[in-house]
C-alpha cells in the first residue's frame, strides 16, 4: 500500500514547467498562487473539510506539472480539481454547487482577492445577485468545461488521485515528540498552519517532498516559532528525513508568507491585477502583450540563471533567518 506516500514530480517535469511556453516565472508563480488560494476559498464555501480541499490543491499542482498553465481558464481548472476531489471523497458536491461557488468567487461581489479596506457597507450595497448568478446557458457551459477539464486532469494524472496529506503525520510525530513540552494546541496549530500555507507555495512543496518530510519541516518551523526546545540529536532522521531536505523545506515554508504579501502588494507581477479579484487568462495575456512577449519565449537560457538566482536568495534568507 502506498497510502503514506505521494507520486512526486520528476526533475524533468520541474524543469519543463520552468520552460513552458512564454510565461515568465513570476507570472507562473502568481497564477499558481492565485489558483491555490481560490481553491482554498472554494473549499470553505463548499463546506468541505481541509482534508479534502488540500487534496484538491495537491491534485491541481500535479496537473500543472504535466499540462501547460494557459491551456484552460485558471478558475475552471481549480473548480475541476475541487469537484473531482470531492467526488472521490465521502462528501461529494454537485456540479451545481461547485458552479455557484466559483461563479461567486470570481465575481466582483466576492471579497476574494479584493481589497478588504473597501467599506463593508458599500460592498453590501453593491451586493447585486445578478453579478454572480449564472444563467442556465452559462451554467451549462460551465458544466461542460468542468467535465472536460476533469477528464483532462484524470488523464494527466494517470488516475493517481490518491493524495497522502502530511497533517495526520504531523500530529502523530508531535505526539511521539511529546509536543516538545509545549501546550498541545499551540504547537500543533502552528505546525498545521505551516502545512496549510505550504499548499499555496509555487515551489510545489507537496509535489517535491513526501508527507513525512513536510510534517517534520512544519514541526521544526512551529517549534522555532513558539520557542520550543527541540531534541539535541538529529531527531528528523527518526522520521526518515535528512538534513538537507529538511533545510530546503524549512526555508520554503518560511518564505511563503513574505512572498505572498509581496506578490499581492507593491511588487505587482501583473499590472492592474490589484483589486481585480481572481487572476484570469485574459489578464495574463494582456500582461504578456504589455511586456511584448507574444509566443513561446526564447528565454530558455535565462531559466537556469534565474533558478540559481532564486536559490541564492533563498539561501541568503535561510542564513539571515537563523
Amino acid at each position: 500500500m502506498s497510502h503514506m506516500t505521494n507520486p512526486l514530480a520528476t526533475p524533468e517535469q520541474l524543469f519543463q514547467r520552468r520552460s513552458f511556453g512564454a510565461l515568465p516565472l513570476e507570472l507562473q508563480d502568481a497564477i499558481f498562487f492565485a489558483a491555490q488560494c481560490l481553491t482554498q476559498a472554494a473549499g470553505i464555501l463548499l463546506q468541505l473539510p481541509q482534508s479534502i480541499t488540500a487534496q484538491a490543491n495537491v491534485l491541481l499542482a500535479r496537473y500543472w506539472l504535466v499540462e501547460p498553465l494557459m491551456a484552460h481558464e485558471f478558475s475552471d481548472v481549480s473548480a475541476a480539481a475541487m469537484y473531482l476531489t470531492a467526488k472521490l471523497s465521502a462528501s461529494p458536491r454537485s456540479p451545481r454547487d461547485v458552479c455557484n461557488v466559483y461563479a461567486y468567487l470570481v465575481s466582483p461581489a466576492s471579497t476574494f482577492f479584493h481589497p478588504l479596506h473597501q467599506p463593508l457597507a458599500a460592498a453590501a450595497a453593491e451586493n447585486n445577485p445578478p453579478k454572480y448568478c449564472l444563467s442556465e446557458s452559462q451554467y451549462q457551459s460551465f458544466h461542460a468545461r468542468l467535465l472536460a477539464i476533469e477528464a483532462r486532469v484524470f488523464y494527466a494524472l494517470s488516475f493517481n488521485t490518491h493524495v497522502a496529506l502530511p497533517h495526520p503525520l504531523a500530529v502523530t510525530y508531535l505526539q511521539a515528540l511529546d509536543f516538545l513540552n509545549m501546550p498541545k494546541e499551540t504547537i500543533a496549530k502552528r505546525a498545521l498552519a505551516y502545512l496549510n500555507a505550504a499548499v499555496l507555495s509555487p515551489q510545489m512543496l507537496y509535489c517535491t517532498s513526501q508527507p513525512n518530510a513536510l510534517a517534520v519541516a512544519a514541526i521544526y518551523n512551529a517549534a522555532r516559532d513558539v520557542g520550543a526546545k527541540m531534541p539535541e540529536c538529529e531527531w528528523w532522521e527518526v522520521f526518515d528525513v535528512d538534513r538537507e531536505e529538511l533545510g530546503f523545506l524549512v526555508v520554503g515554508m518560511r518564505s511563503i508568507e513574505g512572498w505572498g504579501r509581496k506578490i499581492r502588494g507593491e511588487e505587482e507581477p501583473i499590472k492592474g491585477w490589484k483589486g481585480k479579484g481572481m487572476l484570469t487568462r485574459r489578464m495574463v495575456q494582456e500582461e504578456l502583450r504589455r511586456r511584448g512577449i507574444e509566443e513561446v519565449g526564447e528565454e530558455g537560457d535565462d531559466v537556469e540563471a534565474d533558478m540559481a538566482r532564486r536559490l541564492d536568495e533563498r539561501m541568503a534568507e535561510l542564513e539571515g533567518g537563523s
Partner: peptide, 19 residues
C-alpha cells in the same frame, strides 16, 4: 539514509507521466 531507502521504494516516477 532512510530517505534514500524511501526514494528507492517509492512509487515509480513513471506513474506520474499520464496515461
Amino acid at each position: 539514509s532512510p530517505r534514500s531507502f524511501a526514494i528507492a521504494h517509492q512509487r515509480p516516477k513513471s506513474s506520474f507521466v499520464g496515461c
